[in-house]
Design a protein around this nucleic acid. Structure first.
Lengths: 169, 169
DNA sequence: TATTGTTATACTCTATAACTATA
DNA sequence: TATAGTTATAGAGTATAACAATA
């Protein structure tokens, strides 16, 4: 159980300001040429992902909720009694890594393992009422966050982005 | 110098198949409801990023080149004599983490630190001719990879995606 | 024999603090 | 005093192998 130490690391801006470059790096502040990097989808995907992760953590700060925890709560809420293996397969997590994650959710009183009747190897997962309450609040906050995104892209742009990302995977 | 052990881990599909779900998880294979997760930009951004990372590593396997290494080679090539601090600021890397990364590039004979004349604290970075050769090959391979992306999105979709991602950050 | 959940472990990425040598 | 580079270290995230209990 290595999750006892709360850290809440926020991963600072990470990818920084990019080509436009901004700031107090040095006196010189010579502009850096990015060359072909500016045209690479993978590069911008990584920058966008870091940006989104940072914004998400900032938004969820009051709940101290990580993206994976959020998606697990949603999945349990949508599929009461779901098994650990199913959650892992759906979200692409290793079952070994899911154990401490779920331990933490149980420790915080948000979810529970119930020993299953049909198959005594597996446990059925449920949200506690506390977990349901927290998830409702998380959904509120997440709506705010999506609002910030659509403020940048417009509703149409947001839809386009989602469609393009879906088409990619 | 902890980079001596070559690993070339490829991060397997990670996010798995998602809503459409695919496979041999179990006999039951009950469909998992994703609920609102399906509408969240951040969720799809992460899936797309994992997908792109996996494809990139697969494409660059012959060169054993990580995304960050690739972007650093490009930046040095575009800005001969650039300082470490500048590369870090441009790409959003911690200077402390840049040291082993650069050590590895030097160990492989792709880049060099030259002790600078004007400021003896800093070193100027250059590609070796071997580094230039490898970068050319990497650019070839990367073009193939972008080709796979545009095969999914179309040229227009690819442009749209890049624009939307840029607008986001 | 295969599967569920678990433990142990290891590698990568990212972050901070403290040090050195210069400026 | 401030900056460039370095070292040491710690915390997440993700991967594999091996195990016990159950099917």
């Amino acid at each position: 159980m290595q999750n006892s130490k709360r850290a809440s690391r926020v991963e600072s801006s990470a990818v920084s300001n990019g080509p436009a470059g901004g700031g107090k790096v040095s006196a010189a502040a010579r502009p850096v040429r990015f060359g072909p990097l500016n045209d690479y989808i993978g590069y911008w995907l990584r920058r966008a992902q870091v940006w989104a992760m940072t914004g998400f953590l900032e938004t969820m700060k009051e709940l101290d909720l990580r993206p994976t925890q959020f998606s697990v709560l949603i999945l349990i809420n949508e599929n009461p009694g779901i098994r650990q293996t199913e959650v892992c397969a759906a979200l692409g997590l290793q079952k070994a890594n899911f154990v401490p994650l779920l331990n933490e959710l149980e420790r915080r009183g948000l979810a529970v393992r119930k020993v299953g009747s049909p198959d005594r190897r597996s446990s059925a997962l449920y949200l506690t009422s506390q977990g349901e309450t927290l998830l409702q609040r998380a959904n509120q906050l997440h709506a705010q966050w999506e609002g910030q995104i659509s403020a940048r892209l417009g509703t149409r742009g947001q839809e386009q982005l989602r469609e393009l990302l879906q088409k990619l995977t």
